[in-house]
Design a binder for these strands. Structure first.
Lengths: 338, 338
DNA sequence: TTGTAAGCGTTATCAA
DNA sequence: TTGATAACGCTTACAA
């Protein structure tokens, strides 16, 4: 059986109240009693029961993370950021998957409610009206990472997807690419999909480039989406000279079938990814990509939540800067063929 | 304020005991009282407070995961496996990083003890004598994933590292590679390092191949380790025709500097990775690698822990089979040059 | 079938 | 500087 403050109290010849004070470093006791208590605690190998504490303080010192059910490096970085600052502040982290496309989100939230987490961080899951209502009802400090809520009712931290893709497209234009494709974006995704599509479209329009539907292939941000898109390009025998991808993984998919078909990157085909996950800099040639400050987003998100818990204040949303990580998968074409 | 069973009891006109029974589906009440209670609970938007339950049942329905402080896909897969089966069994998962090389392991374990998790899963952290004692003292069902304890005192699930590297080396020999390097392995790591080194050495000996220290470069399983090793090969102007790597990331590292120096894979250099993380199949050419059943290891580990909690039984260790994932980074050399 | 009440390990209020 | 003691929200004998 594990020791409790009662055991310590008995052994040290004091009351449980005093033990509690000492343990929590509250002050209001003599140094000798303190030493006696501490010694007794050590002797008994005491470990504080946080669940009991939680019950009375009505705080669990726990923050919940909800992520979609996919295993990409993307989440690893964010979770690391969260966990590190949680640790610094003495918080624990409880992790749940919300299933494919967040279909288990209700369950996840219920779990968070049952566990009485002090705050929650939701990553990359779009929130509809109903889910927002649930969150509002739960009345937990909640922040969204890399996503947004319908009607923008919840605080978030994310990158400006529109600008990011606009800039990526611009970059291809600056490098004189005559035809630029867009691949892997989910056009039913109001947060990560539509704005990116618009960024691409607007950039092209701005430069009086024609929009060619053959160069746009939608998908789900996955590796397979990149593969499928590239296969389609080959099938239609019409391959853009540059491709802007929805994610690094999509870019790898594109690269993979390009490679199989004897295309070299960037000589025969230029590509830009999105996220700057480790695969981007680890692959050869290293992938030029839109860098999201994943770790920092996690860290910052966690900080905000913890602050909101402490000060009982509202959180403010933030658009964090992305950064085009220029590496080796985009080639400069000559303005005009000689 | 959140509703409690007291509120429900009042509203339904029953005692809290009855409410508890209904909520937990224990039986021993009329259907009409049940309906009344359920209705009241719904009306009040009741969410059970699991911390209170934990306090009385002395079970938290929580399992703790401890992983080293690195963000590689490796852990993503394992954690996914764990989380999925935890979810199925109604368990929550609490995640902590144990710092670089597990230097924060003590803190992590303390946290698990404080939170009174029902079981813990430790991933990829070698456990010395002292840490084992702590675990034993905590008396929590603990399983090790992809690692082992000194003296083998704790149950584990892992792959046979010796055999894995032996087979990888063998594979290179079978493909007639005259010189085979070993890269990225930590020779002070008794679990993941030494056995692999031995597997490599033994295989070479078995085939009467000379051991050339110039072809062995130690490291820490990282991408950078691969980079450093390959740079050394270039510097010493002595590059093996095939390289067995400590991890997929290490393999990507060697591939990366090979690429920079104009070497094509597998034509100029053959490589084998280790782990079969997503980067292995996503890269081009796709990486031949030793596949560890990461997700399954996580799932199985979690199942064992949950079973151990339920039946209060010992866990048994298991060596799970690895699988050489043959892809495209190893070339068959002609037996003799013509 | 239902209710009473003790107790889980803490914290916190009040009094000494 | 200390100690009694009542909570916290729930489960679980035991009684009715």
């Amino acid at each position: 059986m594990v020791a409790t403050i009662k055991d310590i109290a008995k052994r040290a010849g004091v009351s449980t109240a005093t033990v509690s004070r000492v343990i929590n470093d509250i002050g209001g006791y003599g140094t000798e009693t303190r030493d006696r208590v501490l010694q007794a605690a050590k002797d008994l190998g005491y470990y504080k029961n946080e669940t009991a504490t939680s019950l009375v303080t009505n705080k669990t010192k726990t923050i919940g993370i909800i992520i979609p059910n996919v295993s990409t490096n993307f989440y690893g970085n964010i979770v690391n950021g969260i966990e590190d600052v949680a640790y610094e502040h003495g918080y624990s982290v409880i992790l749940t998957h919300a299933g494919i496309e967040g279909n288990r989100l209700g369950d996840s939230l219920k779990l968070m409610a049952n566990r009485r987490v002090d705050g929650v961080i939701i990553v990359s899951i779009y929130l509809g009206k109903k889910q927002q209502e649930l969150i509002t009802w739960l009345n937990l400090p909640t922040i969204l990472l890399s996503t947004q809520a319908e009607g923008d009712t919840l605080p978030y931290i994310k990158v400006d997807d529109y600008q990011a893709i606009y800039q990526a497209t611009q970059y291809m234009i600056d490098h004189h690419h005559p035809t630029i494709g867009l691949v892997g974006i989910n056009d039913t995704d109001k947060i990560a999909g539509l704005p990116r599509l618009k960024g691409y479209l607007d950039c092209l329009k701005q430069h009086n480039r024609p929009i060619d539907r053959d160069y746009i292939v939608f998908g789900d941000f996955s590796f397979d989406a990149g593969v499928a898109a590239m296969q389609q390009f080959f099938k239609q025998k019409k391959i853009p000279s540059a491709i802007v991808c929805a994610s690094d993984e999509t870019a790898m998919g594109v690269k993979s079938v390009a490679y199989e078909n004897g295309l070299t990157i960037p000589d025969d085909l230029s590509i830009i990814g999105y996220d700057d996950t480790s695969i981007a800099w680890m692959s050869s040639p290293p992938l030029t990509t839109i860098g999201q400050p994943l770790y920092e987003m996690g860290a910052k998100g966690c900080e905000r939540v913890i602050k909101a818990i402490a000060d009982n204040c509202e959180m403010v949303s933030e658009i964090v800067p992305f950064k085009l990580m220029v590496r080796k998968t985009v080639k400069t074409l000559n303005d005009k063929p000689c």
